[in-house]
């Protein structure tokens, strides 16, 4: 595989975490404009753990994931009782709050004679675990793929268990969910925790691939993008958001035919898909049909 393909695939993988994270909340009936906050938290926490504290990679990434999940749950605790629009704006406010805090967040320590760590708006350089451990881009793509497979596996387990059904019932009709004995608030907080952890995993992996992160990378635009991926790809299955990422980054960026008109083409494509299929390409109905076909 050439370097370009590897970098495109890595990008697809990393954005998939963010897209799945927003998708989990969409399934649960909540629109989040702010999953990039957890991506940023994962990136910074993972980076600090491996670069500043010199923790092993897996532990550093794990730290990022746990922090993202815990903060996701804590933010959800007061916000889940907000409805629709209010929740969306609250997530947006939190994400911008995180970004503006990172703009003034400095935490530098001397490591091997160099000052390492985040330095406010100047960003966070030298997250060099992959370089020091001698992991090639292809090997790192493998790590990203393994992480993504773990997330998909977790969601597949939830689909076999009661988790996904609970999320979907709450998302579809919270009042009815309550009448079926489901604790709607608790399920929403659980969904936000899960979504926070997934986004943070993506962020931690991203930081170690890019070796440099800065607050400006975690703006609203990428949050809205990740939300759109799920809506384009479809809400019926976890492969929906991944399909959305594939369409955007895979098709348009890698083909380069549309080069500078990429957004005009992408925008038009998305608008068209949504007119024809308001719940995305892989919507619930299609997924059920595919499942029935597979079962035969």
């Amino acid at each position: 595989m050439d370097a370009f393909t590897i970098s495109v695939l890595s990008n697809i993988g990393l954005f998939s975490f963010l897209a799945i994270s927003a998708w989990v909340l969409l399934i649960c009936g909540e629109i989040s404009f702010g999953q990039q906050a957890y991506f940023a938290i994962g990136a910074y926490a993972g980076g600090i753990a491996t670069a500043v504290w010199q923790w092993p990679f897996a532990l550093g990434v794990g730290f990022g994931v746990v922090l993202g999940a815990v903060i996701g749950g804590l933010v959800a605790w007061p916000t889940t009782r907000l409805s629709g629009m209010h929740y969306a704006i609250a997530t947006l406010a939190f994400a911008e709050f995180v970004r503006s805090c990172l703009n003034v967040f400095s935490y530098q320590r001397e490591v091997d004679g160099y000052l390492t760590g985040p330095d406010g708006a100047n960003g966070f350089r030298d997250i060099r675990w992959a370089y020091e451990a001698g992991v090639e881009p292809l090997g790192y793509l493998g790590i990203i793929a393994a992480g993504l497979a773990a997330v998909i596996g977790l969601i597949a387990c939830m689909a076999r268990g009661r988790g996904m059904a609970q999320l979907r019932i709450v998302g579809e009709d919270p009042i009815l969910a309550g009448m079926q004995g489901l604790n709607v608030n608790r399920i929403r907080i659980a969904a936000a925790t899960l979504a926070g952890g997934i986004a943070a995993l993506g962020g931690a992996l991203y930081a170690h691939l890019a070796t440099y992160v800065e607050p400006a990378q975690f703006g609203v635009m990428i949050g809205v993008h990740s939300l759109a991926y799920g809506l384009i790809g479809g809400l019926g299955t976890v492969f929906g958001p991944i399909l959305g990422v594939l369409v955007d980054i895979g098709l348009l960026e890698s083909l380069r035919v549309f080069s500078s008109y990429r957004m005009i083409v992408f925008g038009g494509l998305v608008a068209l898909v949504l007119i024809l299929r308001p719940r995305g390409i892989l919507d619930e109905k299609t997924v059920r049909r595919i499942q029935a076909w597979l079962r035969r």
Binding site: L227, A228, M263, I264, G267, G268, V270, A271, R279
Partner: peptide, 17 residues
């Protein structure tokens, strides 16, 4: 939701244009 996502797509178009 579809309308919101679609208006985002159009946003991308307008900005690029």
């Amino acid at each position: 939701l579809a309308s919101m996502a679609s208006s985002f797509a159009i946003w991308m178009q307008l900005e690029e244009a």
